[in-house]
Structures are given as C-alpha cells and as structure tokens.
Amino acid sequence: MTEPVTMVETPIRLDYSYTPGVASSRFLRSLEHGQIVGQRCPRCLKVYMPPRGACSMCGVATDEEIVLDGKGTVTTFCVTNVPSPGLTPPYVTAWIRLDGADITSMFLIQECDPAEVRLGMRVEPVWVDESERQPNLGNIRYYRPTGEPDAPYDDYKDYV
C-alpha cells in the first residue's frame, strides 16, 4: 500500500418505491388474471402491447383497452447456442406480433425443435398455473406452436 492512489471506487445505491403508472398497472393486473390487455391510440388506431398510456407516435393518451387473446405470429427469431442462466441451449427467442397488436414483443419459443421455428409460424402462450400468477410478464412461461397454418407474409410484413 505504498503506491500512489490513481483510482478510487465510489459505490452508489439509491432505493425507490417504483410505481409503473396507470396503463402499466392495468396491464400487469390483467396478466395476473390470465389476460393480455393492450391499448388503442385514438388517432392512428395502433394497438400497443404492453400499453404505456400514450401513443409515442401521436403524443396522445391511449384510453381504449383492447383484450388480446395472446396468440401471435413469429416475425423474426434467434437460436442461441451459448448457455444463459435458466436456459439450456439451443433455445429460441422470437419477436412475436400478437394478434390485434401493432408492435411485436419478445418471448421464448419452446415445445418445438429450434430447426422448426420460422417466420410466420403461429404460436400461443403457455401460462404458469393460476395459483402462481403474479402481476408480471413472467406469467407467460413461453410460447409454443399452435399447429395452425403459417400466416401469409402480407399479414406480418409491416412488423418484420
């Protein structure tokens, strides 16, 4: 300990009681009840999932709630071959456009060979048991194929 000091460590810690806002609270509560609730912009009519209470393109409040059934279409995906905590490779992460929503969301795809995953694949959520549900997106364990025919490209081309 005779070398001159040239570096210093300054730890910081701040504590918050985070509240997510009205739209997000309603969304998270809906998940607790096994529902997915988005919001529609009154101006451009786009449906946000998750909703944030405002349309980021129009700058207006999004009051109208839209209940989505959770099914969706894979718009792009990635097969990961390196391990990640809680995930055994290879595993698949996909951007999914939920039916009725205008933005895509990221979920895992399971119950399916990674080689089978493709753009346009129809998928549905697998929820945790009702008794274990919390107000968060962890209620959706993953998505799995529905077995329906693939969606035509025109259906999702604006979301790729």
Binding site: T19, P20, G21, V22, A23, S24, S25, R52, G53, A54, G59, V60, A61
Partner: peptide, 24 residues
C-alpha cells in the same frame, strides 16, 4: 402515486399547446 411520468406530463403538454391552438 398512480400516474407515471408520461401520464403526468401528457395532459400538461396538451394544455400548453392547446392554449394557443397548436399541435406538436
């Protein structure tokens, strides 16, 4: 306690713009 920053801010911006008949 309920509204987040965006939800709190949005009506304030709309009022300021609306007072003079403007939009973004």
């Amino acid at each position: 306690p309920a509204r987040n920053e965006v939800e709190m801010l949005l009506p304030v911006i709309q009022e300021a713009l609306g007072n003079v008949g403007m939009t973004q």
